[in-house]
Nucleic acid binder design. Structure first.
Lengths: 98, 98, 98, 98
DNA sequence: ACCGTGGTTAGCTTTC
DNA sequence: GAAAGCTAACCACGGT
């Protein structure tokens, strides 16, 4: 392992920000954490959107369970096709056609 | 149960589109499915982004495992604070301070 | 929760066996642990067998990667069929044919 | 690379069996695949058995989570001891005590 | 309100 | 040592 960046970093939320324990590493870590948190927020927003769609579907008489199954099946189709393509690539590579 | 909307819907991908089994319901179902699929695609895009951030973190010497734990902790703190705030509001309302 | 079975139980391996902390619960817990451990041993034995088969395959000129892909594809077929059947059941249930 | 054995092999399940693409290699490949599949089936059977044990444990008031941790601990102990033994053998060999 | 199930995520093993 | 595939823990949802 090259660098280790072992950084003491308080887990509390002292408003106003980090004391310079760990120096620049602290800043960097904080930035990483905030990026992840932001992305996760967006992600869970989308999860909520999806739930809304299912709720709406249910409201108009479509069973969410069935829709879920259909979507799963379609996804499996896509994956199967992709998998087949990859296998084909493997074959080609094996016989020197890559 | 009011409406049931049971619609046979082929899971294959015949380009050109659905035969009119289910009529207008088929259209509606298809639309629902596509909305969900689109949202899930975006969602999994974000998941990939998050992975990239962790990869980058690792590349600069931060252990993803630790970062994950920090984020979890921060999330718990946030939720705890939110709950406390809600409780506080409740109390205020109870004593006519709202 | 009915029973809780909170049992102090030493994690060390004093040959000769457990002192009766927890009484009968200790015996029971030990038995459960040993059953799981035995099953996991068998399981990892099978994993080794599988590895051997791949090694043998490789030794006779078959690429393990390709075999893995083939097996995966076959498995996907099986799962897809199962999934389709379940969807069908769901449909039947939805229209009261269950 | 000595032999390559690249064999086109249909992933579908046409009952009645393989056309003779690849000849004897096809037979051999099929046999390999089936051996692996059989072993994996057994393996996943054992995984199910393990789940059952945990379910039973839970039913009688033991928390699976705790049992898992105990088992992990015990495994680590065993491995640690084995490593120590190996090291000991090494030392013995080094000083001519083997 | 709880249980069971299904889906997601993280950690581990193996491969290249 | 990096990348992928696999497995197992966790979490959230739907059903009872």
């Amino acid at each position: 392992m090259a660098k280790t960046n072992v950084t003491k970093f308080s887990s509390g939320q002292e408003e106003g920000g980090e004391r310079e324990v760990g120096g620049v590493a602290g800043k960097r870590l904080k930035s990483l954490i905030e990026r992840v948190e932001r992305l996760e927020e967006e992600k869970s927003g989308l999860a909520d959107d999806i739930k809304e769609v299912y709720a709406e579907a249910k409201g108009t008489g479509f069973e969410p369970r069935i829709i879920r199954r259909l979507i799963k099946l379609r996804k499996m189709d896509v994956e199967k096709r992709r998998e087949e393509d990859e296998l084909m690539e493997l074959y080609k590579a094996a016989i020197g056609m890559s």
